[in-house]
Design a protein around this nucleic acid. Structure first.
Lengths: 349, 349
DNA sequence: AGACCGTATGTAAACGCTAACCTATCGTTT
DNA sequence: AAACGATAGGTTAGCGTTTACATACGGTCT
């Protein structure tokens, strides 16, 4: 018997009824102990805790989910899993959930919008208690509808500007972009190009805003020809940079709106035999692991991605506890990390 | 009413009883339809399916889990989430599971062994139906014990050599390493160093075996000084390469046992002003995204990581269906991808 | 002393689903 | 014509929890 208990493993795992019998109390009392709810005398509590430990009991999540309506499972939707950007956020989310004894149910949406919506609905009743939507495809009104129907979720890194009442976590896009552009200006650059993400995305719009503000406060003129839209991927960055470098008056610096684009830009420069940073400075955004392994290392705006994930969980747990979320929108600080891909422009005095 | 149905969202989602009532059948029939089990006439099936669609019904997973003993949830343990290596496997797993209408419950073990074990136990009753262990810390005997107690799991990329009866999926380490070394030999290299992973890991041992076989069949002599053990991380690769390059007779090529190590080796070479591949050829293993963004691009052994994940799921589903797993151990092919980090040695004629 | 409250614990009814068991109908075989 | 198997579909007992409700036992206050 002892050995069986000690392994903690048994074919049909112990039920609350068995534990109750072993401890000489009712199932309700065991439930109260393991959930720290209701009245239990210290003495009884100790006894039950001992038995629980001894037999390695933990509640069947399905049963709890059915009975109490909470499963301890949190759905996380994410467009893709493997890009560093997402996987770091997911890592942060998972760790934070783990600390709360909750588990993450991962749902890649693979850019299929329909799938995302129905998924969410499906997810939210009977499977998970709540959800974390990373860079969701849903429109603001769709999210509103879901909220009104009692779905509880937090949006991490909203793609579009969404309804005020939806809790969100994001990075300080504008401030980060401002720092990046200011850095380039301080180095002496005046022809600074940007490679943006898709138009309409918050990340694009906000970063553009920060960039323009930096230009303005330095008295530099914005130049439409130096702004090219892309898609946040390496290939896109390469193409955009190629286009920029072919300009009659090419830029001396490029601020790419994420690291992938920046890496693409580095490749484009390399292909034309230009040296980075001597002939072209490049700044990225995100500070994913890639930024540190390219040559030269990429100067980039650091986003606390894991922290963003953790913060999402934090909002979510408060949402579950029905606390009024005073801070419905959290914006986490970004920070410019200066590395080897930026330098003063060569042409300047 | 119509509008409510069409949104598919309702406060308290529909139960099987309601759907049964709407369709004018019993709950059993609805259950049979949605689970494709038992006898249902085509006509009845159609009716029920229509109602199900109309009201957006899908079974409450907790209830199903409790009643039928299967939750449709698969636990996946993984040491860490964000390294590209793992996140690509996870992506493969998640997609494959999605296609089976199953969901993935992610559990990072963070290298905490205790945590992994207890996690597994906890996971496997009441939460998930089965598990996929990626690079598990467990010893063979621990895994055996779990198996004997009815836990169902598949090991993906076993860390150590484990019990025969545990189903596993892995890459063809040995063959891949053989290809890598052969490639270097064919280029004319004779002093080929390797930077390995931790000793005792299957990945290390098998790759070493393949490497040695390649040397042997080319009649080259193995040289103990040219084998240095490391930890699969960039920093380790840099240190190991530094050590190798300081040798009286340094190698003309380095075969690093993963891309991280290879990148570290590239950095070490760069730091000493050595040019890759002119003065030093470098080969990696894994072919993660990083391999394509370093300069020069890394010649490396491609592992079909996403496919490895999918295959894990495939074994798992067969395990669940109680099919005898004829192929208990699947080894997926690896392939050398020649890129810019390898070239003939300079010193040779 | 009776009323009342706070504490402690037990009893049992859900929760939504599946599956075992039952009944009924309709060929088809003997 | 009886027997049987295949098909169709209803009834209902759990699955393991939680929690509302009931009960019981001191104290404390009036």
């Amino acid at each position: 018997m002892t050995s069986q208990k000690l392994t903690g493993v048994r074919d049909g795992r112990y039920t609350i009824r068995e534990i109750a019998a072993f401890a000489g109390v009712s199932t309700a009392t065991v439930s109260r102990v393991v959930n720290s709810s209701g009245y239990v005398s210290p003495e009884t509590r100790r006894t039950v805790e001992r038995v629980v430990r001894e037999y390695g009991y933990s509640a069947n999540r399905s049963a709890r989910g059915l009975s109490a309506g909470r499963t301890g499972l949190v759905g996380v939707t994410v467009p893709l899993i493997h890009p560093a950007y997402f996987s770091v956020i997911i890592a942060g989310v998972t760790e934070a959930l783990y600390e709360q004894d909750m588990r993450i149910v991962l749902c890649p949406t693979l850019h299929e919008h329909d799938r995302e919506v129905s998924l969410l609905e499906r997810l939210m009743h009977g499977t998970t208690d709540c959800a974390l939507l990373v860079l969701p495809e849903e429109s603001s009104s769709e999210l509103r509808t879901l909220m009104q129907h009692g779905f509880r979720f937090v949006v991490v890194d909203p793609r579009m500007r969404i309804d005020e009442r939806v809790p969100t976590v994001s990075a300080a896009h504008s401030a980060g972009a401002n720092q990046a552009t200011t850095h380039l200006l301080e180095l002496g650059h005046r022809r600074i190009a940007v490679i943006t993400g898709p138009e309409g995305w918050m990340a694009t719009d906000e970063r553009l805003r920060g960039h323009r503000a930096a230009l303005a406060s330095a008295g530099a003129l914005p130049n439409g020809a130096l702004v090219v839209e892309s898609n946040f991927e390496v290939e896109g960055g390469r193409a955009a940079a190629a286009q920029l470098l072919d300009l009659a008056e090419p830029p001396t610096a490029i601020f790419a709106f994420n690291d992938q684009l920046a890496i693409g830009a580095m490749q484009a420069a390399l292909e034309r035999g230009m040296r980075v940073p001597e002939e072209l400075s490049i700044v990225g955004f995100d500070d994913t692991a890639e930024a540190q392994i390219v040559t030269p290392r990429l100067t980039t705006v650091h986003q606390p991605l894991a922290e963003i994930g953790r913060m999402g969980v934090s909002l979510l747990t408060r949402l579950l506890e029905n606390q009024r979320l005073e801070a419905l929108h959290v914006e986490l600080e970004t920070k410019l990390v200066k590395r080897g891909s930026t330098a003063p422009p060569r042409v300047l005095a």
